[in-house]
Design a protein around this nucleic acid. Sequence first.
DNA 1: CACTACCCTACCAACCGGGTAGAGTTGCTT
DNA 2: AAGCAACTCTACCCGGTTGGTAGGGTAGTG
Lengths: 137, 137
Amino acid sequence: MLSKRSQYALKALSYLTEKYKEGPVLISEIARKKKIPLKFLENILLELKLIGILDSKKGKGGGYFLIKPPSKVRVADIIRKVNGPIAMLPCVSLYFYERCKNCDEKHCALHDIMIEVRDATLNILEKRTLVDLAAMP
Amino acid sequence: MLSKRSQYALKALSYLTEKYKEGPVLISEIARKKKIPLKFLENILLELKLIGILDSKKGKGGGYFLIKPPSKVRVADIIRKVNGPIAMLPCVSLYFYERCKNCDEKHCALHDIMIEVRDATLNILEKRTLVDLAAMP
DNA sequence: CACTACCCTACCAACCGGGTAGAGTTGCTT
DNA sequence: AAGCAACTCTACCCGGTTGGTAGGGTAGTG
């Protein structure tokens, strides 16, 4: 499961994508519309800014906004940065790889299965961007 | 990512599958061979017994053993019982479903993407059993 | 009797999912 | 130019869970 933090981050980003052309959006507006605890969201948006996905403007008329066009931001990358590895095991992660101490990867059946799962997942998440998240009928 | 607990559980079960015909296996043997902290493993095996995957025998010649043929135990079910939901969001989980407070599932693009991911994952994990975990060359 | 699973307590460090207070920056108004 | 309101930003605190380490006691079985 994605952490609450990651779930909220995705929800917030999808809202910011909808409002992409309308300039800065208030934290409080996002919190209200997406039903996210205000102070927690504040913290999450700050992280997304440090990561380089969002930027913010202080003072009246301020708020948060996407720094890049939504079509350039992949869902897989957001999840990796906010939640961590997408793979189920460290020894099959592409971006967070760690060697397995208790098995030989060449002869580990668990390893093979989890690589399959990882590839199937990435095949979906790396093709999707924020644009796909905001596609509302 | 799977929790350490789940990773250890899978490793332990794959070892018990290899030794399926040889009777009870000592906790200490599993811990040594799979490099799992002994006391932590003790706790994990106990849970697997309560869940109904293992049984144990005390005294000399005792230990833990599989209660069912390895071919009857699906990897997906082990993960669900030890780790929890396989899906990335509660609102797309089959066995741990929770309604989404901040979106309408019929019009939520995130929801749709995560259902795709879930199905791709389950398509692999529900076909695999312990037999596949122990397949060593 | 020795062996082994079982069960309990206590401790620790780090992270998660929040809550609360207040300081700092900016823009608008007067 | 001053002041206020609208905002972000920073910091600290809480209870619970994760992933251990360590130790000891109990009970069933060959």
